[in-house]
């Protein structure tokens, strides 16, 4: 087996193990929590203890823990997430749309901020010590360290309540009943609701990319190869592009990792804007101890992080010719 294959195989194995560990942890943590998903139903009298027993058996919850665990693993591996206990609908039918809602908001926002903030960061790094640099760093650091819901509320007050430009809440008009994908996500109405949460997300993530890109360029700035580029007669901007290309690696890695993490949603943001995303769904499901729902959600999130980790490794190897597959520099 060649080194490269070995490298891929190794990464895959590690990824698989990590996934296993995370789904195992969530399985046991859920079971160890006090109470059961039927507590509320029983106490409110909607479910008699006998009926509860029945449903319990139906979901296999009366079996010994290890058997449940094995079944659970088997189901995850075959992507059969089962039925929600409380909503009696397939888990996927519940989570799918919420995940889509989250991704449709966060992915474009992340891509936008990655491109724009990285470019600004590189420019700032190149013009080290300029007002452009200091201001951009101050502003984005401020945005990054302020909790996202505060920024959100602030913008809501400004653009929604005061100026009335955009609606304050939800993903679409209450009366809207879209059918079909196009209708759901491509209407003017949706765009209207989309703008503010999108902007907040862009601002929130901008600081990381800006700093990473700026630091990279600052570090490259005095380097000998840029001097030779300069000697060749490249303009400032052309030199900046080369410095940028040379400091792209951490930015791309970070982007891939972030992309994995947004499968968790941005809970606070979803709450403030009434955005029906996966973050809210997860919190709700944990509260209700809806095991299948929580397990599936956590599995998807863990998988996303792990897959994007793998992607970022491969990207690195692709972007940096000196990184060999076995991890060292040639």
């Amino acid at each position: 087996m060649s080194d490269f294959r070995r490298f891929i195989a190794k990464r895959l194995t590690v990824s698989a193990l990590l996934t296993l560990v995370s789904v195992t942890i969530i399985f046991f943590v859920l079971r160890l929590l006090p109470g059961s998903p039927f507590e509320t139903l029983i106490t409110t009298g909607n479910l008699s203890p006998e009926q509860a027993e029945e449903v319990f058996a139906l979901y296999g919850l009366d079996k010994p823990l290890w058997q449940q665990y094995l079944v659970y693993l088997k189901n995850l591996l075959t992507f059969q997430f089962g039925y929600s206990i409380l909503q009696s609908r397939p888990v996927w039918a519940i989570l799918g749309p919420k995940l889509a809602n989250t991704l449709i908001l966060l992915v474009p926002a992340l891509v936008t901020t990655a491109v724009v903030s990285t470019a600004v960061g590189m420019y700032a790094g190149w013009n080290r010590g300029s007002t452009a640099e200091t201001t951009s760093i101050a502003v984005t650091t401020f945005l990054r360290s302020t909790p996202v819901f505060i920024t959100a509320i602030f913008l809501l007050i400004a653009f929604s309540y005061t100026l009335g430009w955009v609606p304050a809440f939800g993903m679409r008009r209450v009366t809207a009943t879209p059918n079909g994908l196009l209708d759901t996500y491509l209407s003017i109405d949706f765009l209207h609701h989309y703008l503010l949460p999108f902007t907040v997300t862009v601002l929130y993530y901008s600081g990381d990319f800006l700093l990473l890109a700026r630091n990279g360029v600052v570090e490259k700035k005095g380097s000998e190869f840029l001097k030779l580029h300069r000697a060749k007669g490249l303009t400032e901007n052309e030199q900046l592009v080369r410095a940028g290309r040379n400091s792209l690696l951490p930015v791309v890695t970070y982007f891939a990792l972030r992309l994995g993490m947004i499968f968790q949603g941005l809970i606070l943001l979803e709450v403030v804007f009434g955005w029906d995303g996966i973050g809210r769904a997860l919190v709700l499901a944990i509260e209700q101890q809806d095991y299948p729902l929580v397990q599936a959600a956590v599995f998807i999130m863990a998988l996303a992080v792990i897959v994007m980790n793998l992607v970022s490794d491969v990207l690195c190897a692709y972007l940096d010719p000196t990184v060999t597959a076995n991890g060292g520099a040639a």
């Binding site: 000998e224 001097k227 007669g233 040379n246």
Partner: peptide, 24 residues
Amino acid sequence: RRDVLWEKIAYIPQSAMDSLDPVM
């Protein structure tokens, strides 16, 4: 000045080890 560079005056730098762009 940029037009003079390389067209008229070319440069061979002191540290060739670090003088080439590593990702090009």
